[in-house]
């Protein structure tokens, strides 16, 4: 499994908002055990998709110097299941007024206009170059945004 939970980024505005999507396929590895004979996209992977989308917002806003890691989830509510064949559309926003060293984000995931997950969370930024080749990731971001 490639632990990449965002397929496409549709738009973003530095330090404010990013939108993207994940297509849930029947061929996903994690559906074999989640659950046997009853495939449902795991809720935590919806949360991971939101965290990765936040990473892309932090990266794109810092010219790919930083990345984001989730450290606290204040609240995350799961409203319904995402099934194979669904396209989950995500939006992550920076909550205004938070301090620079403790930025809080809100994220939402929807399928066909119905919300499936709403989360409020915070994290820390780390050097992108420390964990990935930043230039390669810049190229990958262009693939995701289809620029």
């Amino acid at each position: 499994m490639r632990y990449l939970l965002i397929d496409r980024i549709t738009d973003w505005k530095a330090d404010e908002v990013i939108r993207g999507m994940k297509n849930v396929a029947m061929s996903e590895d994690f559906l074999e055990f989640h659950f046997p004979k009853n495939p449902i996209m795991p809720g935590v992977l919806l949360l991971e998709a939101i965290a990765q989308l936040t990473g892309w917002l932090v990266a794109a806003s810092s010219d790919f110097k930083d990345w984001f890691l989730i450290t606290k989830v204040h609240k995350c509510k799961f409203y319904g299941f995402a099934f194979p064949g669904d396209r989950v559309e995500f939006e992550v926003k920076l909550i205004p007024g938070t301090e620079k060293d403790k930025i809080i984000y809100s994220g939402i995931g929807m399928v066909d206009g119905k919300k499936k997950i709403v989360a409020e969370f915070e994290g820390e930024t780390i050097s992108f170059e420390e964990i990935e080749d930043a230039n390669e990731q810049k190229r990958f971001f262009k693939l995701l945004t289809r620029e």
Binding site: G43, L69, T71, V73, H74, C76, E124
Partner: peptide
């Protein structure tokens, strides 16, 4: 699982 609140994880 339908809701989680007040979660802390070490990220690295």
């Amino acid at each position: 699982m339908s809701l989680i609140e007040d979660v802390t994880v070490i990220s690295n």
